[in-house]
Lab assay of single mutants.
Amino acid sequence: SPPKPKTIVLPPNWKTARDPEGKIYYYHVITRQTQWDPPTWESPGDDAS
């Protein structure tokens, strides 16, 4: 059997959903933003550039 996916701790107000093909995506319940990649926690002042 395939390994279980890691449990991802989502930031507040993010949910997972499935598209009609069964792929998992993520959406923000307030902004209605959707994305394929797991959302990352906002870390103020932490600039990755």
Rank of each mutant, 00 (worst) to 15 (best):
V9N: 15
P39A: 00
L10T: 04
H28G: 00
Q35L: 05
L10H: 07
K4Y: 11
P11K: 06
R18A: 04
A17R: 12
S43Y: 07
P2W: 06
Y27F: 04
N13F: 14
W14L: 00
T7C: 11
K23A: 06
D47N: 07
K4R: 03
D37Q: 07
Y25Q: 04
Q35M: 10
D19Y: 03
Y26D: 03
Q35F: 02
H28M: 00
P44I: 04
V9P: 03
Y25G: 01
T7V: 09
D37L: 08
T31N: 01
A17Y: 09
Q35C: 05
D19W: 00
L10A: 01
I8W: 12
P11I: 01
E21D: 09
S43R: 10
S49Q: 11
G22H: 04
S43F: 05
I30K: 09
P20K: 14
G45H: 02
D46K: 08
E42Q: 06
P5T: 15
T7P: 05
E42M: 04
W36E: 11
D46H: 14
I24G: 03
V29R: 04
A48Y: 13
P2S: 15
T7R: 13
I8S: 14
L10K: 03
D37Y: 06
E42P: 13
P39H: 02
S43W: 07
K6A: 11
K15Q: 06
T7G: 14
V9M: 15
T40L: 10
T34M: 15
W41S: 15
D47R: 09
K23M: 03
T16Q: 14
G45S: 12
P39T: 00
A48F: 10
D19V: 05
V9G: 08
V9F: 13
D37C: 10
P20E: 10
T16A: 12
T34E: 05
P44Y: 12
P3G: 14
P11Y: 02
L10Y: 07
P2E: 07
P11S: 04
T7D: 09
T34Q: 09
N13M: 13
P2V: 10
G22R: 03
S43C: 04
P44H: 13
W36T: 11
A48H: 10
W14A: 01
V29N: 02
E42G: 11
P12M: 12
H28F: 00
D47L: 10
N13Y: 14
G45W: 12
K6G: 13
P44R: 11
P38D: 01
D46F: 05
A17H: 02
K4P: 05
D46V: 11
T31Q: 02
L10S: 02
N13R: 10
R32F: 02
D19M: 08
W14H: 03
Q35R: 10
D47V: 11
T7Y: 08
R32P: 02
D46C: 06
T16E: 11
P20I: 08
D46S: 08
N13C: 06
I30L: 10
W36L: 10
S49H: 06
K4L: 06
R32I: 00
P5G: 14
K4T: 06
P11F: 04
T16F: 07
I8L: 15
G45F: 12
W41N: 11
A17S: 08
V9A: 08
T31M: 01
P20V: 06
D47H: 11
P39I: 01
W36M: 05
P44D: 10
P38F: 09
V29L: 06
I30N: 11
V9W: 07
P3H: 14
A48V: 08
I24K: 04
K23F: 02
P38V: 10
V29K: 07
Q35D: 01
P5Q: 12
S1P: 04
P5S: 15
Y27R: 07
Y25W: 00
R18H: 06
E21H: 02
D19Q: 04
I8T: 12
P5A: 14
P5E: 13
E42A: 09
P12S: 08
K15S: 05
P12V: 08
G45Q: 06
D19G: 07
S49T: 12
T16W: 11
K6H: 13
